[in-house]
Amino acid sequence: MAAPARRLCHIAFHVPAGQPLARDLHRLFGFQPLAVREAGGWRQLALRSGDAVFLVNEGTGPQEPLYSLDPHHSVPSATNLCFDVEDVDGAARALAARGCFMPVPPTRVRDAQGTATYTVVSSPAGNLSLTLLQRAGYRGSLLPGFRPLPCTPGPGWVSHVDHLTLACTSGSSPTLMRWFHDCLGFHHLPLSPGEDPELGLEVAAGSGRGGLRLTALQTPPNSTVPTLVLAESLPGLNSEQDQVEQFLTRHGGPGLQHVGLYTPNIIDASEGMAKAGCRLLTPPEAYYQQPGKEEQILAAGHKPSLLEKQGILLDGEKDEFLLQVFTKSLFAEDTFFLELIQRQGATGFGQNNIRALWQSVQEEAARAQGA
Rank of each mutant, 00 (worst) to 15 (best):
N222W: 02
D84S: 08
A116I: 15
V121G: 00
G194N: 02
W179H: 05
G90N: 11
T152C: 12
A205D: 13
S170A: 13
N222Y: 00
S172D: 06
L133M: 09
P174S: 14
W157I: 04
P155V: 13
S223K: 05
R209G: 07
G200T: 10
S207R: 10
S173K: 09
S170I: 10
G156D: 13
P220G: 03
S129V: 15
P221L: 01
H187M: 10
R139P: 06
Y138W: 13
L191E: 01
M102K: 08
R110Y: 09
G211D: 09
R178W: 03
P174A: 14
A136Q: 12
L128R: 04
D162K: 05
H187P: 03
R98Q: 15
A94T: 15
E202N: 15
G140R: 15
P106I: 02
M177V: 08
T119Y: 01
R209D: 13
S129W: 09
R213S: 11
E202P: 15
T169W: 03
Q134F: 03
R108T: 13
A112Y: 06
G200N: 09
F186I: 12
C183P: 02
S129R: 12
S170Q: 15
P105S: 01
P105N: 03
G90Y: 07
L143H: 14
L164Y: 02
E202G: 15
G99F: 09
A167P: 04
D89Q: 08
T224N: 03
T115I: 11
P197F: 10
Q218V: 05
F101C: 09
F146P: 14
E198R: 07
P193M: 08
A112G: 02
R98M: 07
L166C: 08
G171A: 11
D196N: 13
S173C: 14
V104K: 04
D162W: 07
L199G: 12
L143N: 14
P103K: 14
R108W: 11
C100G: 01
A216I: 07
G145T: 08
S129D: 11
V104Q: 03
Y138P: 11
R213W: 08
F101M: 12
L149E: 09
R209T: 13
V158K: 04
P226S: 00
G90F: 07
F180M: 04
Q218F: 00
R135A: 15
T175L: 12
L191S: 01
Q113W: 11
S207Q: 12
P193N: 04
A116Y: 06
P190T: 01
P105E: 00
H163Y: 03
L133K: 04
F83W: 03
P190V: 00
P193R: 03
G211Y: 05
S129I: 14
R213D: 08
S207P: 12
R93W: 09
P220D: 04
Y138E: 15
S159F: 00
G126I: 08
G185N: 08
P197L: 14
D196T: 04
T119K: 05
A125R: 01
A204L: 15
L214Q: 12
P106H: 08
C82A: 07
G114K: 14
A97T: 14
C168E: 10
A136E: 13
L143D: 13
R213K: 14
P155N: 15
G206F: 07
